[in-house]
Amino acid sequence: MQPRRILEVPIPDGVDPKGDDLELLKAVFQALTALRVSQGRDWLAKVKELEGDGWTVRWGLTWRAEAKRGEEYEEATGKTLDEALNGVAQMVVAEYAGHVP
């Protein structure tokens, strides 16, 4: 396995991203890197195989949110950050609100 490589990207003068904006920049950069630079094109073959079977295949970037508390874990994805986080919140509420047989 190759050693982990880190690329530093200077932030333009006068721009001071914090919190969510930093996370957004990181996520976008990682996604673009993964899409453009990652090794292998096996997924293309998978797409062709699925299309050959009659599937219409679409793919794209999505938000993924997770909540962890000790051993408890919930995760959800969504087209927007709101959708992903709402998904997690809904499942936490539904799962832990209290249920008896």
Partner: peptide, 26 residues
């Protein structure tokens, strides 16, 4: 759209379904 105190088996069923899930206060 489920009441927040529905039975645990409904929560499981909702998890298995591809529909969006949401809840309303009891």
């Amino acid at each position: 759209i489920a009441d927040r105190l529905v039975h645990a088996s409904i929560v499981d069923g909702m998890r298995l379904c591809k529909a969006m899930t949401d809840t309303y206060k009891h």
